[in-house]
């Protein structure tokens, strides 16, 4: 029914105004001189030049470092969990997946906030240490706390995305591999792991993207002085009011994220070029 195709028109208008225009505004602000007044633009690259200050570059690298470590930790912890879940009975799988997704429905700020009372100097963990006669450890406002908060928040995404692929994996392939003489470890390395890469890749996307741009977790668990790129952007817009600079930083971040996503996908494709031919059909 071609008549229904016209239903898309209002949405195209809506999208242009509320999705495309805002993106263009960020670009516009990033490349123009200050002044929040409309219609007084002057092209400049200053906002980008300003970012190449060692202070800001350090923040950028810190953000990337934290996000990459978080992503790697999520793979290392999430993969075995997803693997174990996919090997349980169907009923247990449903239950475990429900249990793992349930915390995701609770407000992210609330969940992060809950860690404060556990990690703080007089907090639950240190009380336990004290009970066993151990010296208290400073955990709040450290890299450890920030990464813990990130892993806590984003691990479920990794588990679910790997699990989804593993659960769909044809058991006959594993049988076939055993049948051809591969022991369980060889089977895992040669069959299960390569075939579950799409799940890992989408997990990386789901973890890395929010991890590199979050400003709530570092603020709560890293303290006011802890600066990641998300905090930097927030400051420019909320505290300092330097919208042009803030837009430039956002643009740089968006480009880096897009670049790393393309890179990840490319690495995956190169690693298994035959699989990617049919990748779409398989998953």
């Amino acid at each position: 029914m071609k008549g229904y195709a016209s239903l898309v028109k209002p949405y195209i208008l809506w999208m242009s105004l509320f999705i495309v225009v805002p993106m263009l505004l960020i670009v516009l602000y990033a490349f123009t001189e200050h002044g929040n007044a409309l219609m007084a633009f002057r092209f400049t690259l200053d906002n980008f030049m300003r970012f190449f200050d060692p202070v800001f570059i350090k923040v950028l690298f810190k953000s990337l470092e934290v996000a990459i470590i978080t992503t790697v930790l999520c793979i290392i912890i999430g993969y075995p969990i997803a693997y174990i879940i996919s090997n349980t009975s169907e009923r247990t799988q449903t239950l475990l997946i429900l249990l793992i997704t349930l915390p995701m429905w609770i407000n992210m700020l609330v969940r992060t906030y809950a860690w404060i009372s556990i990690l703080s100097d007089g907090g639950i963990l240190n009380s336990i240490f004290e009970f066993f006669g151990l010296a208290p450890i400073k955990m709040m406002y450290t890299d450890f706390a920030v990464m813990l908060g990130m892993v806590y928040n984003f691990l479920p995404f990794m588990i679910i995305s790997i699990y989804t692929v593993l659960a769909k994996l044809d058991r006959a392939l594993i049988h076939a591999s055993h049948d051809l003489g591969a022991n369980p470890i060889q089977t895992f390395l040669r069959i299960v792991l390569p075939l579950s890469m799409p799940g890992v890749i989408s997990g990386i996307t789901l973890v890395f993207l929010p991890a590199v741009s979050t400003f709530v977790i570092p603020k709560f668990l890293g303290g006011g002085q802890y600066m990641l790129i998300g905090n930097l952007i927030e400051n420019q817009f909320i505290t300092v009011g330097e919208w042009n600079f803030g837009s430039a930083i956002s643009l740089i971040m968006a480009v880096i994220i897009m670049g790393s996503m393309i890179l990840t996908r490319k690495i995956d494709r190169d690693a298994s070029d035959t699989a990617s031919v049919e990748g779409g059909k398989l998953w």
């Binding site: 044809d170 006959a172 392939l173 049988h175 076939a176 591999s177 049948d179 075939l195 049919e278």
Partner: peptide, 27 residues
């Protein structure tokens, strides 16, 4: 199964989708 001198042709073939014909046969 991986220690038995028996091989199987599976109902839906169970070919390894991430490998080409040669790699499947050479597995």
């Amino acid at each position: 199964p991986y220690k038995r001198e028996i091989n199987t042709v599976f109902q839906r073939y169970a070919l390894f989708p991430h490998m080409n014909v040669f790699d499947n046969v050479a597995f």
